[in-house]
Computed example of a mutant assay.
Amino acid sequence: MAPGNIGIVGAGLVGLGWAIVFARAGHAVRLYDNAPGAAAEARRTIALRLDDLRQAGLIDEAPATILARVSVADSLAEALEDALYVQESVLERVDVKNSVMREIDALVGPATWIGSSSSGLPASLYTEGLGCRDRCLVAHPVNPPYLAPIVELVPAPWTSPATLDSVRTLMQAVGQAPVTMSQEAPGFILNRLQAVLLMEAWRLVEAGLASVADVDLTVSQGLGLRWAFMGPFETIDLNAPGGIADYARRLGGLYRDIAAETTEQRGWDNELIARIEAQRREVLPEAELVARSAWRDRRLMALALHKRRMDSADAAGTDPAATPGTQ
Rank of each mutant, 00 (worst) to 15 (best):
N5H: 05
I8Q: 04
A11C: 13
A11V: 07
L16G: 04
W18V: 09
A19R: 00
F22I: 03
H27L: 06
A28H: 08
R30F: 10
R30Q: 11
L31C: 08
A35V: 15
A35C: 10
P36R: 14
A40K: 07
E41F: 11
T45W: 04
D52K: 05
R54C: 13
R54N: 11
Q55W: 02
A56W: 01
L58M: 03
I59W: 05
E61R: 09
A64F: 05
V70L: 05
V72S: 09
S75A: 09
A77C: 06
L80F: 00
V86F: 06
V86G: 06
V90I: 14
V90P: 07
R93C: 14
V96H: 05
V100H: 04
M101P: 04
M101G: 04
E103D: 15
D105C: 07
L107F: 08
W113P: 00
I114Y: 01
G120W: 02
P122V: 07
S124Q: 03
S124R: 10
L130H: 00
G131S: 03
R133F: 03
D134K: 02
R135N: 01
C136V: 13
L137A: 01
L137T: 02
L137P: 01
P141G: 10
P144D: 07
P145W: 00
L147T: 08
L153T: 06
P155V: 10
P155T: 12
W158Y: 15
P161W: 01
A162N: 01
A162T: 03
T163F: 07
L164N: 02
S166R: 04
T169L: 09
L170K: 03
V174M: 04
G175M: 09
P178M: 12
V179Y: 11
Q183H: 14
E184D: 15
E184N: 14
E184W: 12
A185H: 07
G187L: 13
N191T: 14
R192I: 14
Q194W: 11
Q194T: 12
W202P: 05
A207Q: 12
G208H: 07
V212N: 03
A213I: 12
D216I: 09
S220T: 15
Q221V: 07
G231K: 09
G231N: 13
P232D: 14
T235Y: 08
I236V: 15
I236N: 05
N239G: 15
P241M: 06
G243L: 07
I244F: 04
Y247M: 07
A248M: 10
A248T: 13
R250D: 12
L254W: 03
R256Q: 14
D257T: 13
I258H: 04
T262F: 05
T262M: 11
E264S: 02
Q265T: 07
N270R: 02
E271S: 13
L272Y: 00
I273T: 13
I273D: 09
A274P: 11
R275Y: 05
R275L: 13
I276R: 03
A278M: 04
Q279V: 12
R280Q: 11
R281N: 13
E286V: 12
E286P: 06
A287L: 06
E288V: 01
E288I: 00
V290T: 07
A291Y: 00
S293A: 09
R296D: 08
D297I: 03
D297W: 00
R298S: 11
R299A: 11
A302K: 01
K307L: 15
M310G: 03
A313T: 11
G317Q: 10
D319Y: 12
P320Y: 08
A321C: 04
A321D: 08
A322D: 10
T326E: 11
T326Q: 14
Q327D: 09
